[in-house]
């Protein structure tokens, strides 16, 4: 293969999020002209915000070549606790929300403990805490929906500077996360760890601390996402958050974050990925695709994301290998 061909291939692989974005946009636009209306975009953005928040956390985890499957259960558990505190104990709202965030962070901390201290594979740890967390949530809610007072469910619809609050919360979180990854020492070190954990250790980085950190952040953001989602729905029912981990993984990977670590961004990456996922979902509704077919298409989208990621990683490593050998 010639050099230009390789470069071309790499350019395509590295810019898949944008290419996909444009393609999906055009396809749905043709299928349903209503898709292009402003309200539609605002709807997409509003309903994208909580998944977007989870995706930010997921991106942190994926950057270290880990995975967090437990975020959906975490959302459920922490939101349930907030709901129960308010409903049954008459706790002030701020306290309940604070508790929810603490629970979410602790949840992430437990994942981090098993992964960093006991060295168990991340997907197994988070798969177990996924099941255990949801079990615990169902136990304390007796598997019944917890309705939240209107004071919470209302502010999901409140607008500040013309934008719905969930979008603003998401924007703030995404901005902070973006700045953190770009300008904080630890942010850059997370990239280093994902790129080459051995070299990171040799360079004297505290890899354990950084890895624990990303799982804790993921837990914290899952709890916040739970709250944001509740503010829109007003109720925490038994299926709350179920399967959201897939959307978050898909969004992150579609946005160009690699499952193999070290590659990925919050902006544009995770943000575009989130909008992409949400756009597909909204588009499926707009084009009136059979309810039962929608999840099939979503699964296919996730697959495409993972597939492209694998191909990209393989191509990059091939080219790297060539590099290394050329000089030998």
């Amino acid at each position: 293969m010639s050099k230009t061909a390789i470069k071309f291939k790499l350019a395509i692989l590295k810019n898949t999020p944008f290419i996909l974005f444009v393609c999906i946009f055009i396809i749905f636009g043709i299928l349903s002209p209503k898709f292009f209306q402003y309200e539609n975009f605002e709807n997409i953005a509003t309903s994208a915000s909580y998944i977007g928040i989870v995706t930010v956390g997921m991106t942190f985890v994926l950057l270290t070549a880990g995975i967090d499957l437990s975020v959906g259960s975490n959302m459920f558990l922490s939101a349930s606790i907030a709901g129960l505190l308010i409903r049954d104990l008459n706790a002030p709202i701020w306290l309940a929300l604070l508790c929810a965030v603490l629970v979410g962070t602790l949840y992430g901390g437990i994942n981090a403990f098993f992964i960093v201290k006991l060295r168990i594979l991340p997907f197994l740890v988070t798969l177990s805490t996924l099941v255990a967390g949801r079990g615990l949530g169902l136990l304390i809610t007796k598997s019944q929906g917890v309705t939240l007072p209107e004071s919470i469910s209302n502010w999901g619809a409140v607008r500040v500077v013309g934008l719905p609050v969930p979008i603003i919360i998401y924007a703030v979180i995404a901005l902070i996360a973006h700045l953190f990854l770009k300008f904080f020492p630890m942010g850059r070190q997370i990239y280093a760890i994902g790129n080459d954990p051995e070299a990171a250790k040799k360079a004297g980085l505290n890899t354990d601390r950084s890895i624990a950190f990303v799982y804790i952040i993921s837990g914290l953001l899952a709890a916040i996402a739970g709250i944001v989602s509740v503010s829109q729905m007003g109720i925490v029912n038994a299926g709350f958050g179920d399967g959201d981990e897939f959307d978050a993984i898909a969004a992150a990977v579609l946005g160009g974050t690699s499952l193999f670590g070290g590659i990925g961004t919050i902006f544009p990456g995770a943000v575009i990925g989130t909008i992409l996922i949400q756009m597909v979902q909204a588009g499926l509704v707009y084009t009136q695709v059979d309810m039962y077919i929608q999840p099939l298409i979503q699964a296919a989208v996730i697959f495409v994301a993972v597939f492209l990621d694998s191909i990209r990683s393989r191509e990059i490593s091939k080219i790297e290998k060539r590099h290394i050998r050329v000089e030998n």
Binding site: F114, L118, R119, I120, L121, L124, V125, L127, S128, T129, L130, V131, A132, G133, R134, G135, L136, G137, L138, L139, S143
Partner: peptide
Amino acid sequence: LDTFTINIVKGLIILLAALFDV
């Protein structure tokens, strides 16, 4: 015990089993 508790226990058991493997 209800299924929820059983699920919690199962989750923990797997972690223990994985730890044991390590």
